[in-house]
Every structure is written in structure tokens, then in C-alpha cells.
């Protein structure tokens, strides 16, 4: 099946891209295309204009933020496989690395991009919960220039983010987490399927014995990625035994509204979240 016809533009700068978006009221941004092209092929969308941002060099690359205390900025159009190949990310942002390693399949990771995935904002996408847990900041370019939106405010609803129709996500900044341990626990039915749910945990240990800080993101536990703040707080000061962590994580699904679908109902997802959160936190604490 072929997509419906569309006009195609391939800007080489962010400004050019923004100009194209401003000039159309039915444009769709094509990043890596790994989610969008299937939708266009199934003709669940037929935009007038497709703006391919794949040739804007400025949107690609992994760099340390100057004066950012170890913060790393990843260009929105950086493909997953480049993120996976980065030593900086593997050592400094292990949780991101591990989540990215779980995205789709190798072919998808060659084309798919971090920015494309975050802007797509599929609640079952692997990167959203991790961006949230890691307190990422989204750099959004628009007609009025750039603005920076924290991950907490970025994900607004199902498939809906802070990126306006005339705006572009250009980069994602991650603070550094030196000395933290992490684990991304993803639960799938088949290897390349979307996760039923996933839990990303990042833990800092004090003197190797008690948890001094924890950050937990939840994938597919609601219309947006979620952060389990109450559990994060409950973990602080805790000696991470299975019993203690399990008890803290029993509340991880409180306040969430996970979907029910062919892979399981909301109750099952809530239960799974408690199990995966416990496992993720214990592993993260062990690895810290």
C-alpha cells in the first residue's frame, strides 16, 4: 500500500523547516519515519505537505552541554543506533542507552530518531518514560525562537506534546547522572512488539547501602509517560531489600490509568507495574 499523494519538502536548516511549517495548515514533519510512514501507508493520515527534516545537519549529533555539569544534548534527528554506539551515553546515561536498545528492531533503530519518537509521543514508546525519569529538557524551535520545556510539561496527552504545529523539537538535554545505577524493565509478548508496559529506574546509593535518590518512569501506564514520584520518595533512605522495595513499589500504579487491550487489561498492567518496578529498582540499586 502506498501513501496518499503529498507535497514533499526537504529543508536543510531549522529556519527553512519552520518557514515551511508556517506556510501550511496541513503539514506533517517526517523525522526517521518509522512510525509515520506506516500510518501514511495505512492512509490514516493524508497530509498535504510532508516536511522531511532528515537533512538538517544541525539536528544531529551527541554533545556535552558546555558548563552543563556533565549534561548531554542529543540532536532530535540523531538515530537510535548512533545513541547506542555512543560511549558517553552508555556510561553516562545508561538508562537511556538500555531503553533505546529495546526500541523496535535493528532496522528501526537505524532509521528511527530520539526526537521523532518523543514528538510522536506514543505512550508505549520506550523513550518517553526515560526522558521523564531522567528529567530531560526539550529544546523546541518556533517562529519566536527557541524555548526549553522540561519533560514534565512536554508530554501533554495521548500523542500530544508541547510542540506546536508550527514548531520543531530540535534537541533533548539530559542532566548527568554520575554514579547512579539504572535498569529498564520492559515487558513484551513478542520481541519486536510494543511493550505491554515498561519501567525505567535510576537509583543513587549513599555509601553503597541505602538509596539516597530514585527516579522512576513508567511506559504505557496512561496516555502519557508517567513518573512514579510517590515511590521515588518512599525509596529514599531505604536499604534496598526485596521486601522493602517491593512494599514501596506496591503503590507504583496508584493514580495511573493504563489502557486495556488485547495484551492485557488495566488491572493486569497495574499489577505488572509493581513487579517490574521492584525488579528495576533492585537491579538499579545493585548496579549503583
Amino acid at each position: 500500500m502506498i501513501p496518499a499523494p503529498f507535497e514533499y519538502a526537504r529543508p536543510t536548516s531549522v529556519d527553512e523547516a519552520l518557514g515551511l511549517l508556517a506556510g501550511s495548515d496541513d503539514a506533517k514533519v517526517l523525522a526517521g519515519g518509522q512510525s509515520l510512514l506506516s500510518v501514511l501507508r495505512m492512509r490514516l493520515n493524508a497530509p498535504e505537505l510532508v516536511v522531511d527534516i532528515g537533512r538538517i545537519d544541525a539536528l544531529r549529533g551527541i554533545r556535552e552541554v558546555a558548563g552543563g555539569g556533565g549534561a548531554i544534548e542529543i540532536g532530535a534527528m540523531t538515530p537510535y543506533h548512533e545513541i547506542l554506539a555512543s560511549d558517553e551515553i552508555r556510561t553516562g546515561l545508561r538508562l537511556l542507552h538500555d531503553a533505546v536498545a529495546e526500541v523496535g528492531d535493528p532496522q528501526v533503530r537505524h532509521r528511527g530518531t530520539l526526537g521523532g519518537s518523543l514528538a510522536h509521543a506514543d505512550p508505549a514508546g520506550d523513550c518517553g518514560a526515560v526522558a521523564l525519569a531522567l528529567g530531560a529538557e526539550m529544546v523546541i524551535a518556533g517562529p519566536g525562537g527557541e524555548r526549553v520545556v522540561p519533560a514534565d510539561e512536554f508530554f501533554q496527552d495521548l500523542f500530544t506534546t508541547a510542540v506546536g504545529e508550527d514548531e520543531l523539537l530540535v534537541a533533548v538535554r539530559f542532566p548527568g547522572y554520575p554514579g547512579w545505577g539504572s535498569r529498564y524493565e520492559k515487558f513484551v509478548r513478542t520481541a519486536q512488539d510494543w511493550p505491554i508496559i515498561a519501567v525505567g529506574a535510576c537509583v543513587r546509593m549513599a555509601d553503597g547501602k541505602t538509596i539516597s535518590e530514585a527516579r522512576i518512569g513508567l511506559t504505557n501506564m496512561g496516555p502519557t509517560p508517567l513518573r512514579a514520584r510517590a515511590v521515588e520518595e518512599a525509596l529514599v533512605g531505604m536499604t534496598p531489600t526485596a521486601e522493602a522495595v517491593g512494599a514501596a513499589c506496591a503503590a507504583v500504579a496508584d493514580g495511573t490509568s493504563p489502557p486495556s487491550d488485547l495484551n492485557g487489561d488495566a488491572d493486569y498492567r497495574r499489577h505488572l507495574a509493581t513487579v517490574l518496578a521492584r525488579r528495576a529498582v533492585l537491579a538499579a540499586a545493585g548496579a549503583a
Binding site: G33, Q34, R41
Partner: peptide, 29 residues
């Protein structure tokens, strides 16, 4: 397939495997 699920169309694009049903010809310019 039409959802980039089966991989039957895999080719190499600039040295990396991709699903050629999930890439536009213009993107391969």
C-alpha cells in the same frame, strides 16, 4: 507487510539495514 513488522524488504541504506517499505524513495536521494 504494511507496518514494518516482517522485514522481508530489508536492504542496506548507506551501509545499514533498513526496512525499505518504511523509507520513501526520496529519502534515499
Amino acid at each position: 507487510c504494511d507496518t514494518a513488522s516482517c522485514g522481508a524488504c530489508t536492504v542496506h541504506l548507506d551501509g545499514h539495514s533498513v526496512k525499505s517499505c518504511n523509507v520513501l524513495a526520496v529519502q534515499a536521494d
